[in-house]
Each structure stands twice: as C-alpha cells, then as structure tokens.
C-alpha cells in the first residue's frame, strides 16, 4: 500500500517528531510513504479568519501539490476537517478547483482513520503501561468522527489504563487566532480543560490534533504539571518500540 504524507505546517515546523512517529507506525504496517515536496499549508489560518481570497490562493497550490497522490494520510485532524468543510465553499465558483478539492477530500484520511478504516488495523502490538486520558478535538470529532477510531486503537494497547476525561468534547480554547485575539477567554477555556485533565490523575493526555495538543501542553508546562501530552501516533509508536 502506498500513501502520500500531508504533514501540515504545524507538524512540519513544530512537531516533526509526530510526523516521524506516524511514518514509523505506518511503515511497520507495510505502508510505503512518499512526501510530495510542493505542499505548504492547507490555508486554514486564513480561512478561519475570513481572509478567503488569501486562503484560496494558498489552497490552490496545496491542492495541486497532491495531484499525483492516490491516497493521502495526515496527522492533523483539524486541517483535514477544514478542507472537508470549506474547500467546496471556497471553490464553489471555480469548477476546476471544485472538482480537484472534492478529489482531494475523497483520497485524504486522518491518521487514526487511516489505520482503522483503510488498513483495517486496530492492534499495532503496542504496550504502554500508563494512565491515559483522551481529549477529543472539536473538528476531528465533529467533522471526521475520529473518536471511534481512537478508542478502537487505545483499547488494544496493552497495559494502558484508560481514564475517561470529564467534558471530553469541550473545546480546549485554541481556535487559531482566537488564542491571541481573545486570550482571556482562551486562557479560561484551557484552564478548564487542564483542570479536567489533572482531575483524572492521568500520566498522559492523548489527542489527534496538534494545535489542541500544543495549546494544552503550553498551559500544563507553564503550570509545572507533569502530565505528558502526546499525539496518538507518538503513543502508538512509543508503545510499539518497547
């Protein structure tokens, strides 16, 4: 099975280790990966902020960079969710790119969905002897339905002690530019999320979206808390390597 990596700008620049973890997990499942070098950003920051003309230009380049790929996998649920929700609207007056974006949506999968739905794998033979709780990121949850995949994967990780998170589905307060435009509200929201996480007594909080995880991690670190924040790919990778 061949697949192209859509790394997303946040993973590329700030969390390349998550990309590497994803590569290892997928290669272990026999997937042969390639990296279309023309990819930059899906345009979500401009899209969410309402700068659709700017977003459109960047999105076009992005769509074209994946032209040759047959199947695409990404570690960032919210980027894919944005593409799914908004590319058809962004290009509704441009038949050529409307078609291309529909094509792109059809062939792109979020990492945990790729494992469970495409590869039909729920057990990667991982062992992870820690208490783990799960933050369900808004966009992957609501637009991609990834919760069921994450649960399926975590269930099969040996020695993993899963503790449900109160208000699991509540937004962590990132929201892109929201976090710097409305910082007090954002802080209030991440405080609530962190309080719920600490209340579980978990060693690790796992998630599918890097922007959320960066937000939560940022707050935990400032508070001096010990909880590790991990992407599902990192958790599985680490679990596979022990």
């Amino acid at each position: 099975m061949k697949a192209s990596i859509f790394i997303t700008c946040i993973c590329d620049s700030m969390f390349p280790r998550v990309g590497e973890a994803m590569v290892r997990v997928l290669e272990r499942q026999g997937v042969s990966l390639d990296f279309p070098p023309g990819q930059t950003c899906c345009g979500q920051p401009a899209l969410s902020s309402g700068y659709w003309d700017d977003a459109r230009e960047v999105a076009k380049g992005f769509i074209d960079s994946f032209h040759a790929s047959e199947i695409i996998v990404t570690p960032a649920g919210s980027c894919l969710a944005a593409i799914k929700e908004f590319y058809p609207v962004l290009f509704e007056k441009d038949p050529k790119y409307l078609d291309r974006s529909k094509e792109l949506i059809r062939k792109t999968h979020e990492f945990s969905e790729f494992l469970v739905e495409v590869l039909q794998v729920t057990n990667v033979n991982a062992s992870f002897p820690y208490k783990v709780t799960y933050h369900s990121s808004c966009h992957p949850r609501r637009f991609l339905g990834v919760d069921k995949y994450v649960y399926a994967l975590l269930k099969n990780v040996e020695k993993l002690d899963f503790i449900p998170l109160a208000h699991e589905e509540q937004c962590c307060g990132f929201g892109g530019t929201f976090s710097v435009k409305m910082p007090e509200i954002s802080e209030s929201m991440v405080n609530a999320k962190v309080a719920d996480i600490l209340a579980t007594g978990a060693d690790v909080v796992v998630g599918t979206d890097l922007s959320c995880l960066m937000n939560i991690d940022g707050r935990l670190r400032k508070q001096g808390a010990k909880v590790r924040v991990m992407h599902i790919a990192e958790l599985l990778d680490e679990g596979m390597r022990t």
Partner: peptide
Amino acid sequence: GWTNSRYLPAAAKKTFREIW
C-alpha cells in the same frame, strides 16, 4: 496573548521535510 498563560513550543531545529 499566548505566552501570558502558556508556554509556546519552539519551532523544531529541523522541519519534518528536512528530516524526510
């Protein structure tokens, strides 16, 4: 706006595409 309440992770020394 961010750093008043959170740490911001530094950009990685090498991007994923460089590592790739």
